[in-house]
Simulated scan of single mutants.
Amino acid sequence: MIPAKNRAFHLPPELNASVPPERRGINRDHVKMMVLDRKTGMYEHDHFYNIDRHLRPGDLIVLNNSRTIPAVLSASLKRSFITIVDKVEIRLARRKGEGVWDALIVSDKAKAGDILEFSDHLKAAILHIDKNKPLQTIKFSQTGGELFNSIYELGEPVRYEYIQTPWSLDYYQTVYATNPGSVEMPSAGRAFTWELLFKLQKKGIRIAFLQLHTGLSYLLDDKWIMNPAENSEEYDIPEATLQAIVQTKSEGGRVIAAGTTVVRALETAAAQVKRKGWTNLYIHSDFKLKAVDGIITGMHEPEASHLDMLSAFVKSEYLMRSYQDAISKEYLWHEFGDMNLII
């Protein structure tokens, strides 16, 4: 873990990326990229479309193909058929079962047994309320594809405080996303284009996929501080991906995770010998990585637990030194921002 005193860098507000690259006039893969050497701490600046220059034939990139859902919904709060609140914001956090979700209910009036009415066709019962926790459990009146269709019809994507424009859901998707379930975008893969993926494969760099549905990290109120170990997320790693990892390792190649979600899934699978399940793995400087050799990631805030994970890859002083230079070079932070390759 990076001690607080070693990560107290100042991030100027203007470096919070509030606009997708495409709306800034550049392609997804034309964002900046800082390449950081794990062993030496040396770094250089490039652009993401040149990532193939920093990888070798035989390396393997693992991508998270979870698709972002529009997880912010609006409902009326009803009790015994009487409307208690006309409009309540509901932020889905994670799917727990058929039609059952943990969710952030933005109202202090909600009680167990109340009904959330999203539309004439979609309702949810509040199964449990714990005032000491941010997330509550709700059960929708629909399940499966029918429920996802309603969510896509009624919801909008999670938007952080530095994003003022309600960008459409398309901007919160990776080009290869297939399986809906993430409530926040697995953003480390956003900069990939199909052209770049084909270029990487042409060079002999393998591509494999897994699925981890990201949970809700942005809880609106500063009083809710979620410990990384409390953030359980569902993952599923195909057998073909596991075989690709074994082959890559046996041939001397490197396994490069596209994002912290991929690291959590692969390291959980390595520790538990389980191809699918739930992970609440907290990775920090003392964690010994078993599956992953490098990471493609965005730029993270001083208080982000993701920085703790990066300290498992590279010494904190190397990371902070490179971050300070990225700030001086006006790198952009967050999901619409610039990238960092650590190998």
Rank of each mutant, 00 (worst) to 15 (best):
E98I: 07
T83P: 03
R95D: 00
V62F: 07
L60C: 12
L77S: 04
G99K: 01
K78L: 08
A71R: 13
I90N: 00
V88F: 10
S66Y: 06
T68Y: 11
A93L: 01
G99D: 02
R67Q: 14
I61E: 07
R95N: 01
V85D: 14
T83D: 04
I69C: 00
P70E: 04
G58T: 01
V100F: 08
V85P: 00
L92C: 06
V88S: 02
V72M: 01
R94G: 00
V85Q: 15
E89H: 12
D86S: 13
S74C: 07
L77N: 06
R67M: 12
R67F: 13
S76R: 12
V88H: 08
R67I: 08
P70N: 08
F81K: 15
R79V: 01
F81H: 14
N64W: 11
L73Y: 05
F81V: 01
E89Y: 15
L73W: 08
L77D: 10
T83Q: 12
V85A: 11
N65Y: 08
R67S: 06
R95L: 05
N64Y: 12
R91D: 01
T83S: 08
R94Q: 08
L77T: 11
I61M: 14
A93M: 03
G97P: 02
F81Q: 15
T68I: 09
N65C: 06
L60V: 11
G58E: 00
L60N: 07
D86W: 09
S74Q: 12
V72F: 03
